[in-house]
Design a binder for these strands. Structure first.
Lengths: 321, 321
DNA sequence: GTATCACTTAAGAAAAACTGATGCGATGAA
DNA sequence: TTCATCGCATCAGTTTTTCTTAAGTGATAC
C-alpha cells in the first residue's frame, strides 16, 4: 500500500472543512473559491481511495475514514502552526512573553516591573499567570519562572532563588503576639499554595520545628499565596509566608518576622526558556534584570535560624531546652 | 505579524533536510532534484524572514530559528503521516493488527489462533506483544487487549473477562502437596507480572486468605507470566497462576488446582479499538470470535471459593475454624 | 413554483514546483 | 600546489499543480 502523504494542500483543505463542517466556510478561511476547495477534497479522496465526506443536501458529514483522519490531521497542523509561530517569534526582539505563577506574578514581578520597563523601553512585556506546565513550542511563551525540583526540561533552566517560609505579620500583630509560644492563641492564616509539597510546609511543621506545643488552630485558608499575603497585609492574621513573595514587604517594613525561625523548602525557583533561545536579546535582558533585582534585595533571613528540611522526616528544629 | 503557514512543500522539504542534515539526501528521499530542494528551503527562508540553515562548505547547519522549527515540524508531519496511515488502514479489510501483553499473546491467543484462521482465512493477523499503552492513531494497531481498571479511553472498550489467581501445578506435585497446609514446604513459583497491582496478588496474599500459617518461602521469580506458567508446566513448582492464562491448561488436565481457593483481582481484561472502527469487518470478526472462545471455555472456578479482594484491606479469607 | 444554498464540474489561467545545466567555494588526494 | 570532487546556489525553461470563472445540479425554504 502506498502510504505516502497526499498533496498537503488537500490535507489542509480537509482540516479546515472538517473543522467548519462546511466547504464554503473552509474556502473562505483559506481565501480560495469553494470550487478550489471542492477540488482539493476530491483530490484527497482519490488518493485515499474512499470518500472522506458524505455529501448531504445542505451539509456535509464525515465518513468513517474521514473521522479517522480528523484528529491526527488537526494535531499535525496544530504542531506545524505552533512551530512556525515559535520560529517567527525568534525574529521578534521587541516582545517578551513571561509565564509565572499567579502569586509570583502579583507579588514579585508586578511591583518590580517598572525598573525593567525603564531599562528596556523597547521591550513590550506580556504576562501569562498560570501554574500549568508550559510547552514553549505550543504556548507562545518565551520564558517561564517555575517552582519545583529540577526535572527534565526540554529547555534551558537556571536556578533563581530558594524558598523558605516563616511567620510574618503586621507590626500591630507582632506586638500582640511577641513570642512563638503565644501563637496558638493568634489568628493564623493558611497558605495552601505549597501544600502539594511533601512534607507540607504548614503551621504544624513550623510549630514542630520551633518547639511550640499545642495543635495549630484552624483559620482562613487561601489557595493562592498572593491572596494570603493580602490578608496578612490587612492585619487579618499571621501568615506562614514564602520569603520569595514577601521579601520586599519585609524589607520595606510593611510586614515583620519577629520569631527568627524559618523552614527551607526543598524546591527552588528556576528561570526556563526554550533550548536555543538563551541569547535572544529580550531574554538576555530579562535574565540580567532578574539577577540584578535578586542581588539588590537584602537577605531577609539574616539573623534567622533556617531549618533545612524537606527530607522524609520533615523539619527538625531545636526544641527550647 | 503574518503567522500563516508557509507553503507546506517548503516545510516538508525543511523537515527532510533537517532530518538528514543534507539537502541532497533530503532531495533523494523526496524524489526531487537537489535544485528543487534548495529552492524550497530558500522559499521557506523568504517566508520566515531569516535563514534556517547556515551553509557551510561541505555541510549545512541549523540556525537558531531553524532549531526552533525542527521539533514541531517533525511532530507535525509525524502526526499527519500517522493519521494518513490510519485512514488508509480503514480501507484494508484483510489484515488485523492485534496488541496484547506477551503472556496473553503466548498463552491465550496463540493456542486458539488456528480456529480464527479457520473461520476467517481471508484475514491476515499481525501481533504486537507489548504492555505499552497504544495509541491507535500512531501505532498502526487495530485492536488492543488490555488488563487494568477501566479508564479514559479514546476508543471503544468492551469488558472481556475477569482475572483470578489460584495455585496450580502438575498432577505429580498435587500428589506430593495435597493440602494447602503443606505448601510452606513446597517449591513455589512467583509471577511478578501482576505485582504492580495493589494489593499484590502474591503468595502472601493467598496464604493469608487461605488461612495457611507460615511465611511463604522464596522461590524462582518470573517477570512474565507465560514464563512462570512454562516453569509450572515443567513441574518446577507450584504457581499462583492467572486463570485467564491457565484456564485452557486446567480444562485439558495438564495442570490441576486442588485447593479450591482463588483470589479475584480488581481489574479486568478489555478489548479496545479506536472510536469509529467498531464495525470494520475484521474487527467484528475478531470480537465475535473472542466472545465465542470465551463462552466455549468451561469455567475453571466451579467448585472453588472465589475471594473478591482488591480493596484497601486486601483479601480476607475464612480462617479454618 | 421559484429563489436560494451548498457543492460539483469543466476549461482556461495563474502560480508553483521541478529539471537540467552551470557556477562557486572548500575539501582532500595526488 | 593542483585538480577532481562534493554539496549547495542560481537560472531559464518546462511541467505540474492549483486556482478562478462560469455554468450546473439537486434539495430545501418560502
Amino acid at each position: 500500500m502506498n502510504d505516502r502523504l497526499p498533496p498537503l494542500t488537500a490535507l489542509r483543505a480537509f482540516e479546515a472543512a472538517a473543522r467548519h463542517m462546511s466547504f464554503s466556510r473552509a474556502a473562505e478561511e483559506l481565501a480560495v473559491t469553494p470550487a478550489a476547495l471542492s477540488f482539493q477534497i476530491k483530490s484527497l479522496e482519490d488518493h485515499l481511495g474512499a470518500p472522506v465526506f458524505r455529501r448531504m443536501n445542505r451539509a456535509v458529514d464525515l465518513t468513517e475514514p474521514g473521522r479517522a483522519l480528523v484528529p491526527g490531521v488537526r494535531d499535525g497542523f496544530a504542531a506545524l502552526n505552533a512551530a512556525w509561530r515559535a520560529a517567527r517569534r525568534m525574529q521578534d526582539t521587541r516582545t517578551l512573553t513571561i509565564t509565572a505563577g499567579p502569586a509570583f506574578t502579583a507579588k514579585w514581578l508586578a511591583p518590580r516591573l517598572f525598573t525593567f520597563a525603564g531599562q528596556h523601553p523597547e521591550i513590550e512585556m506580556r504576562f501569562v499567570a498560570s501554574l500549568r506546565v508550559m510547552d514553549f513550542a505550543r504556548d507562545d511563551v518565551d520564558v517561564a519562572i517555575r517552582y519545583g525540583v529540577p526535572q527534565d526540561d526540554d529547555g534551558h533552566s537556571i536556578p533563581l532563588l530558594e524558598e523558605c517560609v516563616l511567620p510574618v505579620m503586621t507590626r500591630e500583630l507582632a506586638q500582640r503576639f511577641p513570642l512563638p509560644g503565644t501563637l496558638p492563641q493568634a489568628p493564623l492564616l493558611h497558605d495552601d499554595s505549597v501544600s502539594f509539597l511533601t512534607p507540607r510546609p504548614d503551621w504544624a511543621a513550623w510549630f514542630g520545628a520551633a518547639g511550640v506545643a499545642g495543635v495549630p488552630p484552624t483559620g482562613p485558608r487561601f489557595s493562592q499565596a498572593d491572596h494570603a499575603i493580602d490578608a496578612a497585609l490587612s492585619g487579618a492574621g499571621i501568615l506562614l509566608g514564602r520569603t520569595s513573595l514577601i521579601a520586599r514587604l519585609l524589607n520595606e517594613g510593611v510586614l515583620v518576622a519577629p520569631y527568627g525561625i524559618a523552614l527551607k523548602l526543598p524546591s527552588i525557583y528556576r528561570l526556563v526558556c526554550a533550548a536555543g533561545t538563551e541569547s535572544r536579546p529580550q531574554i538576555v535582558a530579562f535574565r540580567e534584570w532578574l539577577f540584578g533585582e535578586l542581588d539588590r534585595e537584602p537577605d531577609v533571613l539574616t539573623g534567622h535560624t533556617v531549618i533545612p528540611g524537606g527530607g522524609p522526616g520533615g523539619w527538625r528544629g531545636k526544641r527550647p531546652g
